[in-house]
Computed example of a mutant assay.
Amino acid sequence: MGIPKTMKALQLTEFKQDKFELNAVPIPSIGDNDLLVKIGAAGFCHTDYQVWEGVYGSKLPQIPSHEPAGIIVSVGAQAKAKGWENGQRVGVMLFKHACRNCVGCETTSDVRFCKNVVIEGLTTDGGMAEYIMAGSR
């Protein structure tokens, strides 16, 4: 069985309202340094509640959940060279795609300090879906 073109995803459609919708959306595409993960579990924590409140000004509709877990189903070429492979179980970190050029990146190797980092469930879609694109670091 291959990877479908669309997936089911829960989307927040309005801040501070019970406006979650289950929609069909495209499967995320991955780059050379990324992984496609089939979601096995995703939670809704305090940070997700803050997204619901509109604290971060996240784009809507937004797929919530920033720390899902699942199984790798597709691996980019550079990620494969790092040892990632289909079938591995993974927890997906919320931070991905550090720019490596800003002051935060130049002064620390910690992705949390990147001024341009992508944050799953906050600045990009999260894990309350069937699949998520994860960075392989």
Rank of each mutant, 00 (worst) to 15 (best):
M1G: 11
G2L: 04
G2F: 06
P4K: 07
P4T: 00
K8G: 12
K8L: 14
A9W: 13
A9S: 12
F15Y: 14
K16A: 07
K16D: 08
Q17L: 12
D18C: 07
K19V: 07
F20N: 12
E21Y: 01
N23P: 02
A24G: 04
V25F: 04
V25I: 12
V25Y: 05
P26F: 04
I27P: 10
P28R: 00
G31S: 13
D34K: 06
D34C: 15
L35D: 05
L36Q: 06
K38E: 14
I39F: 15
G40L: 14
G40W: 01
A41C: 11
A42P: 10
G43T: 00
F44A: 03
C45S: 05
H46R: 06
T47I: 08
E53G: 02
G54Q: 00
G54I: 04
V55Y: 07
V55M: 09
Y56E: 09
Y56F: 15
G57P: 13
S58K: 02
S58M: 08
S58C: 05
S58N: 07
K59Y: 13
K59C: 13
L60S: 13
L60Q: 11
P61G: 03
P61A: 09
P61R: 01
Q62N: 14
Q62E: 05
Q62R: 06
Q62T: 01
I63G: 11
H66M: 08
P68C: 12
P68K: 00
A69M: 14
A69K: 03
A69Y: 13
G70I: 06
V73R: 10
V73P: 14
V75K: 09
A77E: 15
K80C: 14
K80N: 14
A81R: 07
G83T: 01
G83E: 02
E85I: 00
E85F: 02
N86L: 05
N86E: 06
G87F: 06
G87E: 13
Q88W: 11
V92G: 08
L94E: 06
K96C: 04
K96H: 10
A98S: 09
A98Q: 09
R100S: 13
R100G: 04
R100H: 14
R100I: 00
N101V: 06
C102P: 15
C105Y: 07
T108V: 03
S109C: 06
V111W: 04
R112Q: 09
F113Q: 00
F113V: 00
F113H: 09
C114D: 01
C114G: 03
K115N: 05
K115E: 06
N116E: 05
N116Y: 11
V117G: 09
V118G: 07
I119G: 01
I119C: 03
E120I: 03
L122P: 10
L122H: 04
T123M: 03
T124G: 13
T124I: 13
D125L: 12
D125G: 07
G126S: 10
G126D: 07
G127L: 10
M128W: 08
A129T: 07
E130D: 09
Y131I: 14
Y131R: 11
I132Q: 02
M133V: 15
M133F: 00
A134Q: 06
A134C: 15
G135H: 12
G135A: 06
G135M: 04
G135L: 12
R137N: 11
R137V: 05
R137M: 12
